[in-house]
């Protein structure tokens, strides 16, 4: 017969340790958090002082907001490199409306979110209609949004905004909890619900996991890609407001490096860059880990470039760990995840 090519790779796909496997992605970053804490316990116990922990939360807040949306985008096998420029552009628009046009601060904030949503929409149109790959489309749009922000601001630094912008960016509530961190955690909580219990999250996983299957199931892939990028744009605008409030000032060059840091945090948290599998909880861990590392190095008075090196090491270590765990767990030799 012509059909002796049949092997049995699938039979070994038994349900081994399902509960553990689900959290295996989190194991790497968790171990690093613990190692970092042990090191800091010896090197600089002040790391654990509540005010310092609040600084870490404050630092992490922006990336919680961005990471939530980025988790969705990456789960659907997308990526958004333009979020730094979107944050800058939407913040500049808000700042100019307030400063140059005397627009009500709440209206201006709403306008900045609308700008963010629009930028996300434009990204999605380029990706889904012009079929430009996500990476290249958002890379190009990053330049364009940045350019527009630079032209609009014309080199100016806009500063001293009315409340609630500074309050959101650097205010504290309940005896020291940063307002920005509350915003970040709320975003994550919304993200968890979005991810687990709505079509938006479910279809992001389906599109990223098996686009063909998603299409055959009648899922409107284009509409959901659009939704994801629009949400990402909105999140970038909120990040822009947080950034503006943090220094109570903004210029067109803010937010450079936001995209890469966010993507790093999401991936460190165990969301798979090739789509299909994401975790909001992991993103929280990833965001916190990167902020803790940066903070530790600052406290230990390492120079800035060491912070970059450390971030890079954390990223490689967690992805390496993740790949290792999956390879040893999957004996079917598949390498797609």
């Amino acid at each position: 017969m012509t059909d002796q090519h049949i092997t049995t790779p699938e039979t070994s796909r038994m349900t081994r340790l399902p509960a553990l496997r689900r959290y295996v992605n989190l194991l790497g970053p968790m171990i690093m958090v613990i190692v970092l804490c042990i090191i800091m316990a010896f090197a600089e116990p002040r790391f654990f002082n509540v005010p310092n922990l609040m600084i870490i939360l404050h630092d992490a807040a922006i990336f919680m907001v961005l990471g939530t949306a980025m988790t969705l985008v990456i789960t659907a096998r997308g990526i958004d490199l333009s979020i730094g420029a979107v944050a800058a552009l939407s913040a500049i628009v808000m700042a100019m409306l307030i400063k140059d046009y005397g627009v009500n601060v709440y209206l201006a904030m709403a306008a900045s979110v609308v700008v963010g949503l629009l930028c996300g929409f434009v990204n999605s149109v380029i990706i889904t209609r012009l079929h430009v790959p996500d990476l290249l489309a958002t890379l190009a749009m990053d330049q364009i949004y940045r350019g527009i922000a630079l032209v609009l601001a014309a080199g100016a630094v806009l500063a001293r905004f009315p409340e609630p912008i500074p309050f959101i960016g650097r205010g504290r509530v309940l005896g020291g909890i940063p307002v920005s961190a509350v915003v970040g955690l709320v975003a994550l909580a919304v993200g968890v619900v979005l991810y687990r219990s709505t079509h938006i999250g479910r279809y992001a996983a389906a599109i990223g996991g098996n686009r063909e299957a998603a299409l055959l199931s009648g899922i409107n892939v284009r509409r959901h890609k659009t939704l994801q990028y629009v949400i990402m744009g909105g999140a970038a605008a909120i990040a822009g407001i947080l950034l503006t409030g943090r220094l109570n000032a903004v210029q067109a060059t803010v937010g450079q490096g936001l995209a890469l840091h966010t993507i790093a945090a999401v991936v460190v948290g165990g969301t798979v860059l090739f789509g299909g599998r994401g975790t909001m909880l992991g993103t929280l861990v990833g965001v916190l880990l990167l902020s803790m590392v940066t903070n530790a190095l600052v406290i230990l008075r390492f120079q800035f470039f060491w912070q970059l090196v450390a971030s890079g090491i954390v990223i490689i270590a967690s992805i390496g760990f993740y790949s290792y765990m999956n390879r040893s767990g999957d004996d079917d030799g598949k390498d797609e995840t």
Partner: peptide, 10 residues
């Protein structure tokens, strides 16, 4: 035509 990353009910 299954999405491997999603559980059976999904």
């Amino acid at each position: 035509g299954l999405v491997d990353a999603l559980p059976a009910p999904a």
